[in-house]
């Protein structure tokens, strides 16, 4: 492997990592806007890095020019579709997620904030436990899973 190929490989590996993290974000994040955040940034940067790696490997040629064009177009077009999606969601009135919302799981298998607190409480000791309890007091969860603020 020549030096250029090693540099290109590093870029491709970096881009693959970023794209994969973007995919994980799309699956794991709690609401539409956060998922859009992961998808828009992760994919746009990831593809640019992978294509940059391929450009470095190819060098100056027809294929290199095509790769530059693809990366450039995706940079612009992907950002615009992300903007259009966010705009459509906002105009529809989709509310952004806040930590209090996680008391009501949005999808099956998601841990609610209260469940998470209970699950991690035994692991914490002393000051951390007191701090966590203090931070979550004031939020009461009834049986329907709705959040009510006592204060």
């Amino acid at each position: 492997m020549s030096a250029l190929e090693i540099v290109g490989t590093v870029f491709i590996a970096l881009g693959g990592f970023v794209m994969f993290m973007g995919a994980v974000g799309v699956v794991r994040f709690p609401d539409f806007y956060t998922r859009l955040h992961a998808a828009g940034k992760g994919d746009t940067l990831g593809q640019a890095l992978v294509l940059l790696g391929l450009i470095v490997i190819t060098g100056v040629s027809n294929d290199g020019l095509k790769l530059v064009l693809i990366a450039f177009f995706i940079f612009i077009l992907n950002s615009t579709s992300t903007h259009a999606l966010a705009r459509a969601a906002w105009l529809a009135g989709l509310k952004p997620w806040t930590p209090a919302d996680s008391a009501t799981p949005q999808f099956e298998g998601q841990m609610s904030e209260v469940d998470r607190r209970d699950a991690f409480m035994p692991l914490l000791a002393g000051e951390d436990k007191a701090a966590l309890e203090a931070s979550t007091t004031g939020i009461d969860v009834d049986l329907d899973g709705k959040v009510e603020d006592d204060a």
């Binding site: 177009f73 612009i76 077009l77 615009t80 903007h83 259009a84 705009r87």
Partner: peptide, 18 residues
């Protein structure tokens, strides 16, 4: 037409390239 100026501008600029 769409109200989003971003989409409108980009469509106008991207069409010749397409």
């Amino acid at each position: 037409r769409t109200e989003s100026v971003v989409v409108r501008y980009l469509a106008l600029r991207a069409a010749p390239f397409i």
